[in-house]
Design a binder for these strands. Structure first.
Lengths: 233, 233
DNA sequence: AAAATAGTGTCTATTAGACAATATGTC
DNA sequence: GACATATTGTCTAATAGACACTATTTT
């Protein structure tokens, strides 16, 4: 790479709810090339004059589509990290995206797997480059937005229960969420046409059946509430 | 430029309060090179393997320092726009930053000037590349954050009056802000140690003198409030 | 005294949070 | 009926917004 070049890539932090609904998992891909060949890293693509994509967003969609064979329920750019040290090949840039997947999202490929976010934050799994930082920043963005928006719902299938929504919010925020507050938010969403009560029920093993709601996003971004779910308190 | 290259730059959307406190102005630079030579555009620098900067943030600071000869009161990355069309030279990326300047910020250079944001949004002034879009996105970010944070205070000198704070908030949001609400926020900031009553006064031409407050940022980002200003009204 | 501007106090509306009360299912 | 879980209702706390009222200065 000559001095006037720069290595630009798009990396995807694709998250899904763990099967037990107790936390989040990130999609990783085993690298096929150097550097860091064989290690688990964020899926991504290089962008330059010969990419088939017309835009960064398109490159991000392709990166995820080629790996996960599925569309995310939500995708947004989080930021760009660029410096002289993050890649041994030289000055490089990574524009990274948050993608929220349906929990039913399964992965066929050998070289793809979901890892618990816990195992990354506790340093049990270490990612190459600065991918650990990108994941951390992305989770911070998710948590910050979850305080005052409906973003956690994009981690659920379109049909969900109140308990699902509570689990999703708690996974995003990393702490317990008040049941009453969450129900009131769902009621607000219902009034705004963002959520519909299907009238159907889901029977848990024991106890009263749960109402099944349907998520009907009305815009490009999530619904914004006027108050934060109080972080400290 | 070969097909495997990409043109990466950092562009700065540096804003200050207009002298009459009634709106915002953006710092523009008259381009010395092609393409779009001679046109007013966002100040920026190219980043690649031969840049003297070790990081994007450092490049952003340098871009502003070399033009404005001053440090901003606040700077944050807003996003990255990248596609095959925005620059006639080929696939290009621009990571753009929001910078908030002291209103006393003056400019010596011939090739630098502040332009009213109004003249851009009304299409009286047209910027080259997609710089108009970058400015718009940046202003949207500023407005969104101003709803629930102390960000507008970074458009003021450290010593300011309630009226200054109100003007700054209104300029960021593009609409009137409730006087009582703003005063209560300042009171909250005072309790949190983010603002101090200096005890000094400022005597306007007529009427009761104004208390002079001092802005004492306590962290890297702005103070976050728990509710939004002006939900929709 | 009048005018102008700054600052305070009071009341309402909205919404998060705590928690009690009630509903509806399984065993 | 006992138990488990879901849902509803009631009360409190925090904070934005409307607006009346008071304070301090110049002319």
């Amino acid at each position: 790479m000559s001095a006037v070049e720069v290595l630009a890539s798009v990396d995807i932090v694709a998250l899904r709810l763990a099967p037990d609904l107790q936390g989040l998992q990130v999609l990783l891909h085993r690298r096929e090339r150097e550097p860091h060949r064989g290690q688990w890293a964020l899926p991504g693509v290089i962008v330059n004059g010969s990419t088939p994509d017309n835009s960064l967003d398109a490159a991000a969609e392709r990166a995820l589509r080629e790996k996960a064979q599925a569309l995310p329920r939500h995708m947004e750019q989080v930021g760009t990290e660029g410096n002289a040290f993050r890649d041994p090949r030289g000055w490089s840039l990574s524009t990274y995206y948050l993608a929220l997947l349906d929990p039913a999202q399964s992965i066929e490929a050998e070289q793809l797997a979901f890892f618990d976010l816990d195992s990354l934050s506790t340093r049990k799994v270490l990612l190459p480059f600065d991918h650990g930082l990108l994941v951390q920043r992305t989770c911070e963005r998710l948590a910050a937005k979850s305080l005052y928006s409906s973003l956690p719902l994009y981690l659920l299938p379109t049909r969900f229960t109140v308990l699902d929504a509570l689990s999703a919010a708690q996974a995003c925020l990393g702490r317990p969420v008040n049941n009453t507050s969450l129900r009131k938010r769902l009621e607000r969403l219902r009034e705004a046409g963002w959520v519909r009560d299907t009238g159907e029920r889901n029977q848990p093993r024991l106890g009263r059946p749960q109402q099944l709601y349907e998520h009907l996003p009305q815009g490009v971004g999530p619904f914004l509430f006027e108050r934060s779910l109080l972080p400290e308190a």
